[in-house]
Simulated assay, not measured.
Amino acid sequence: MLTDTGHFNTPNASKYLQQLCKHFAHKVAVTHDDSRGTVALGMGPATLTASADRLLAEVTAPDAAELDHARLIIDNHLKRFAFREEFEAMTWASATAPA
C-alpha cells in the first residue's frame, strides 16, 4: 500500500474535518471527533487530523493511480467547504505526488 500526506494551513481545521466526515458518512463508514477522523474510501482509508492551525490528511491506496484518486477526492470535497479561503488543493508530500 502507498501513502501520501497532505496539509492545509487554516484556523478552521476542526470545522472542515467535521464537515468532510459528516459528508462522507452519507456514503461510506466514518468515525470522527473534533480533532481526528477516519474515512473508509474505496481504495483505502483516509485519516484526517485537525490542530489549531492545520488540517492533515493521510490517504492510502494500493497503487499510484488510486492514490492520486484519493488525493483528488479529499481536495475536491474540501474545495466545497473551504471556498471562502480560496482553497485549491492540499500540499501533498510523497514520492508519488505530482509536482
Rank of each mutant, 00 (worst) to 15 (best):
Q18K: 14
G6E: 00
V28G: 04
M1C: 11
T31Y: 11
A52D: 11
A52E: 08
S14V: 01
D68W: 07
R71S: 01
L41F: 10
G44N: 13
Q19E: 15
F87H: 06
Q19L: 09
A65E: 15
M43Y: 11
K22V: 11
F87D: 01
Y16S: 00
D33Q: 01
D63P: 09
L67Y: 05
N76K: 13
E88N: 14
A65L: 13
A97W: 06
Y16I: 04
L17T: 01
R36M: 09
D68L: 14
D75N: 12
Y16H: 04
H32V: 10
L20Y: 08
Q18H: 11
T38M: 02
A52N: 02
L72W: 14
T38A: 08
T60H: 00
A13D: 02
A65V: 13
R80E: 11
D75M: 07
D53V: 04
A89M: 15
L67F: 07
P62H: 13
K22Q: 13
R54K: 13
T91F: 13
M43C: 12
Q18R: 15
H7E: 14
V59P: 01
P98C: 02
T91E: 13
H77E: 12
T91S: 11
R71K: 08
T5P: 03
C21H: 08
G37D: 07
T3Q: 15
C21N: 07
T31F: 10
D75V: 12
T96L: 15
L55S: 03
A89I: 14
K22D: 06
D4L: 11
F83S: 02
F87P: 07
L78N: 01
P45I: 15
N9L: 06
N9Y: 01
Q19P: 05
L20I: 00
S14K: 09
T3M: 14
S51D: 04
A64P: 09
V39W: 04
T60E: 15
A57V: 00
L56R: 07
K15G: 05
F81K: 01
D63L: 05
R54I: 07
D53I: 07
P45G: 09
L41E: 06
F8L: 00
T96A: 14
D33A: 06
D53L: 03
D53R: 10
G37Q: 02
M43S: 14
T5Q: 08
A50Q: 03
T47P: 06
